[in-house]
Design a protein around this nucleic acid. Structure first.
Length: 221
DNA sequence: TGCCAGGCCGGGT
DNA sequence: ACCCGGCATGGC
């Protein structure tokens, strides 16, 4: 089923080119800034950091908190995110001497646990870093993923992050490029057709895979 | 013009 | 073990 879903999404949307041509560090910073935030706003914040020549671990590590807040303000939650970036930078500098290459030498499951111990890094952000910055096959589950799978009845509404991730990873070959493209396609699908309100299920590329009675909602389970 | 966006944490039951 | 409010900006 998941392979079929992928085929349909790829046929409908083509490759999404997520996080192309950018440094792993920039991707990592973007993963924090993107928490519950419109990507357009994240781009503004990243642009500010780039203009200030701060998209490099040591440079960003040395920026005072208040200045960091100003730079990332367009991404929203800027005080919270400044603290979270700070935690992540301290982790990177203190454990890996500020080197992403060194960080990614760590065995992936262990690195994932370490990232989850960083204040402000939850499962989605950790997996985004592993997958999009480290090319490691850790599937990124987001709000869209859950919504799409639940509305189709492929997983129950009570499933948490790791239930969903285990299910997806058990159905797919464990390959980073596939996870990368698959997640990006699910986000694209979500934005265009599977929003929280006013979904456009009947025009969706997956409409033929809907349950007979149409998309499921929590009360219908 | 409200609602929403590529979450996560902390405090209250 | 839940449940919920807080965090903040800009786009549609």
């Amino acid at each position: 089923m998941l392979t079929e879903v992928y085929r349909r999404l790829f046929d409908a949307f083509g490759p999404q080119h997520w996080w192309p041509g950018q440094s792993p560090f920039e991707v990592m910073v973007g993963a924090v800034l993107a928490q519950n935030t419109n990507w357009k706003n994240v781009e503004k914040a990243i642009g500010n950091l780039r203009r200030a020549d701060l998209l490099e671990p040591r440079a960003l590590y040395n920026v005072p908190a208040e200045e960091l807040e100003e730079l990332i303000q367009p991404a929203g939650y800027f005080r919270v995110k400044a603290r979270r970036l700070r935690s992540l930078l301290e982790f990177l500098v203190e454990w890996y001497d500020g080197s992403l290459d060194a960080m990614f030498q760590t065995e992936p499951a262990e690195l994932r646990r370490q990232l989850l111990d960083v204040h402000g890094i939850g499962p989605e952000t950790a997996d985004s870093i592993l997958l999009y910055a480290g090319d490691l096959p850790s599937f990124v589950v987001d709000a869209y993923t859950g919504r799409v799978f639940m509305r189709h009845g492929w997983i129950d509404f009570e499933a948490d992050y790791h239930r969903l991730q285990d299910y997806i990873q058990s159905e797919l070959p464990r390959e980073a490029p596939l996870y990368n493209e698959y997640h990006a396609l699910l986000v694209r699908l979500g934005k265009d057709y599977c929003r929280k309100t006013k979904p456009k299920c009947l025009e969706c590329p997956l409409r033929e895979l809907l349950p007979p009675g149409g998309p499921l909602e929590p009360e219908s389970i």
